[in-house]
Design a protein around this nucleic acid. Sequence first.
DNA 1: CGAGAATATTCTTGTCAAGGAATATAAATG
DNA 2: CATTTATATTCCTTGACAAGAATATTCTCG
Lengths: 111, 111
Amino acid sequence: MNSIMSALAEPNRLQIVELLRFGPRPVGDISERLRIRQPQVSKHLRVLSDAGLVEVQPLANLRIYKLRPQRFQELDAWLDSFRSMWDERFDRLDGYLNELQAQENKDSDKK
Amino acid sequence: MNSIMSALAEPNRLQIVELLRFGPRPVGDISERLRIRQPQVSKHLRVLSDAGLVEVQPLANLRIYKLRPQRFQELDAWLDSFRSMWDERFDRLDGYLNELQAQENKDSDKK
DNA sequence: CGAGAATATTCTTGTCAAGGAATATAAATG
DNA sequence: CATTTATATTCCTTGACAAGAATATTCTCG
């Protein structure tokens, strides 16, 4: 999860990923559209690839990059653990305040 | 979106967010549980707060932090634009290869 | 009001990562 | 095989940022 986040934290990489939503593209195409110099695009694609977010498929002279759904599914699954937040009313200070209350009860017992 | 990602890219901050899933907590509590020194926790919470991921609610001497669902919903919405990926079979090189094919047709016309 | 607890801020330092420029590699093609 | 095109890699410099240490701030309570 951490690798996903840090890969997507870089603005240019986020743009690349968003561009690849529309389909696989070779490096040069990405470079042109996003106005990023080719070496930087290659480097960013390296990072994205290491993070498992994209994969490459050689085609003749070109290297065609495309998204790998898997990691995005993981991100989706991770988000799941937060979804209860906006369903249930979670702002009642549930977790900690129970402890706090227990603590205060103990104090008042001591009195 | 970028601010969300870069806020969550830092491992300790990700941990903090994951801890806050279970409910609001004051700084000291976070510091203890995650074994992170208090000043760093405060600094990380600052970043998370600036990114809109958490909000604070003072209670006596304490400052109780909790997650703000809004930004997580945005992240969820962003992920939506990728969901078509793992439904449809998206590895057929749709986008670019159409262009490429068009290009090659043009070339063969020239012949 | 003074002391102590909880939290925030400042300053400094070291590390890492991104961009630029140049170069290396690989495949295509005449 | 030489050249061109597409892409990757290396080296260097610079800026951002995280951690540590020290200190400031805010609130509570006797």
